[in-house]
């Protein structure tokens, strides 16, 4: 059964990208375990505003685990201690009375901090823009059923396509590598006949962009897969490697 708990939160505060950050600790009383983690932060902010202080900035939007906007490194886990969810789906029942919860922003050279817990993930945008698409214009398209696609292929593609671009993979990785993110998109499109014609080009340009933006080299620790809220498998990374190497050796 859900109870009300008293907790402390140790939050990273940083006024701007160039400023020095520090931890601040706040006490919160009577937090219902039925509330979500972000609702707990709402309560904290309400408290801070009432005390005349600046509320904590954090990214969030849909609050149902699909937009990928929320982040936060909570007690040593991206998206907190519960599995297969985003921070907005994390509930306070994962914590106990008297706990001190440490909340940090995603930390990676690829994701500079904007303010407090908000980081800049435009690097992901740039990778997507480098080739995360099938080059078709609107219109002039064959009928949707013109190309049958085996169900298991479609399902595998869907598994990869479930990525929400939150960046937990980078945040979890000791190497700050974005391979799982890139692999998910490359895999989805490489598995489908629609994506085949430019599969080689896509793999090469997305990886080149990823490298250029300063993400690390994957060493297959699998931390990304463990923390991925959408269970994207690192098998996709093997597929990305395969696609990339195939493309390069063909050149």
């Amino acid at each position: 059964m859900d109870k009300d708990i008293n907790i402390k939160v140790k939050v990273w505060r940083q006024n701007g990208p160039k400023e020095k950050g520090r931890f601040e600790t706040y006490a919160l009383k009577n937090i219902s375990q039925g509330s979500s983690f972000l609702e707990m932060l709402d309560i904290l902010n309400e408290q801070l505003i009432n005390e005349g202080k600046i509320p904590v900035a954090f990214d969030h939007d849909c609050r149902e685990g699909i937009c990928g906007m929320c982040s936060l490194y909570i007690n040593g886990h991206p998206h907190g201690p519960d599995g297969e969810i985003t921070t907005c789906q994390l509930h306070m029942r994962s914590f106990n009375d008297g706990d001190t919860i440490t909340i940090e922003p995603w930390r990676s050279a690829g994701f500079p901090i904007i303010k407090d817990l908000v980081v800049d993930r435009t690097a992901f945008e740039k990778i997507m823009q480098a080739g995360g698409y099938v080059s078709v214009n609107t219109g002039g398209i064959p009928d949707a059923n013109a190309i049958p696609i085996p169900r298991d292929k479609a399902e595998l593609a869907m598994d990869a396509a479930a990525c929400i671009g939150c960046g937990a993979c980078v945040a979890a990785c000791k190497n700050g590598s974005a391979m799982l993110f890139v692999a998910a998109k490359v895999s989805q499109l490489a598995l489908l006949p629609q994506g085949k014609p430019e599969a080689a080009r896509r793999a090469k340009s997305m990886v080149a962009k990823m490298d250029e933006l300063g993400f690390g080299n994957c060493t297959n620790t699998g931390a990304c897969e463990v923390e991925c809220p959408k269970n994207i498998s690192i098998s996709n990374i093997a597929r990305l490697n395969r696609e990339f190497l195939k493309a390069k050796f063909k050149d």
Binding site: Y133, V134, R151, M158, L192
Partner: peptide, 22 residues
């Protein structure tokens, strides 16, 4: 109908039957 065609062409992984059709 064109929307479905467009989305499939973009690589949207719609659910499919075992026969491979949507």
């Amino acid at each position: 109908n064109s929307i479905i065609d467009q989305c499939v062409a973009q690589g949207v992984p719609f659910a499919r039957e075992y026969g491979g059709l949507l």
